[in-house]
Nucleic acid binder design. Structure first.
Lengths: 194, 194
DNA sequence: GTGTTACGATACAGACCTGTATCGCTCAGG
DNA sequence: CCTGAGCGATACAGGTCTGTATCGTAACAC
């Protein structure tokens, strides 16, 4: 049983935590190396630049997001209930001390230029989420699935930002209820059979 | 007729623009001085530190926000219509190239420590908006005004972030419609007489 | 005229940033 | 045993950051 973590992974884990909690620009490479107990040159051997490390973190966050999404929605029988399950889970998460907002919103705020590599990854991620919402909205039988998807999208990002602004006790306590209102309003009179 | 702008104001205007567009950490004091055509020492005479300049910008943004809010809502006869008018106006704004998100969300993202002066101002501003929403929700006759206010609050911040993430063409195109659904759902069966 | 004040320009101090170069150690494979 | 790769530690280069110090000048009060 191997208890020890490879230097590359240690660097990555430390960088992920620091980026998420303190921000991308605020965290320096020296801090990451020192905090992870790894030499600076070892860090640069695995990640040729800080931007590479940021992009790696974002791609990992994307994967974690979708794994979580699948896990949370897989037992819901209908598209409507999948969406509800996601927003219930998100509400729970953003009211947790472990939440520091959304890595993708954070990177887009700190690096506003849309051609910055990290911002690119963020846009792709958010577009995927939007597309998934659209798909589920359509499957649920929404009258205007694109509209519903975008409305839910705004709600989601608003909840993430409430967490970063206020911490664990934030206005996102009624997120799921809001999502339900929007969903059921968009489904009015044409909820699918199952 | 005095056409020339005082150095203090020139610095402030330049700093405001750069902070809003490029972010707080990304913009240096030297850049502000150079871009405004003002000497660095003149800048530091009026604003003893960069943080003071940031706080000044945020307080000004707060004032501008509330002036706009008053202007936009003053002709609406009912609380419900005041809220709708605000979200219609916000939707219009966030789909404009002049929008770079929300100065308060941006500062809270870049400086996550809640005791940072700029973050403090941001929290106060957002709490005021929340309180205003609550007041209007109550006046409109919402069953649970606190819940409605927070739901609208999430929608608002989601729209701001959509703008910063995607630029002028963003998912906030249906913001006002979402607000209306939430409002009318919360008012169901008990809309006030006027 | 004379002193004072605000200003622009520039140089500077000290800290921090990203990224590189160097040295010495450890440990695995042959 | 020996060699070489991976690693930690450290020093360094070159740039940028905030904030200060200095100097010359232009406008203005008296």
């Amino acid at each position: 049983m191997k208890k020890e973590i490879a230097p590359r992974d240690k660097v990555f884990q430390t960088a992920s935590r620091l980026f998420y909690q303190n921000g991308y620009r605020a965290v320096g490479v020296d801090t990451i190396a020192a905090e992870s107990g790894i030499g600076k040159m070892t860090l640069y051997r695995h990640y040729p630049s800080k931007d590479d490390l940021i992009v790696a973190y974002l791609k990992d966050s994307d994967e974690i997001f979708w794994n979580g999404f699948e896990q949370i929605t897989k037992d819901a029988p209908t598209a409507r209930e999948k969406l509800l399950a996601f927003f219930e889970s998100l509400q729970e998460y953003v009211n947790t001390p472990a939440c520091y907002g959304c890595p993708f919103l954070n990177v887009a705020t700190e690096y506003p230029e849309t051609d910055y590599p990290g911002h690119q990854v963020a846009i792709e991620h958010k577009q995927s989420v939007r597309a998934r919402f659209r798909h589920l909205a359509k499957e649920a039988g929404a009258k205007k699935p694109d509209v519903l998807a975008d409305q839910l999208f705004l709600l989601m990002d608003g909840a993430y930002m409430a967490s970063r602004m206020f911490g664990a006790k934030n206005p996102a306590a009624h997120l799921a209820e809001a999502a339900q209102v929007l969903i059921d309003s968009a489904l009015q009179g044409r909820r699918t059979f199952r």
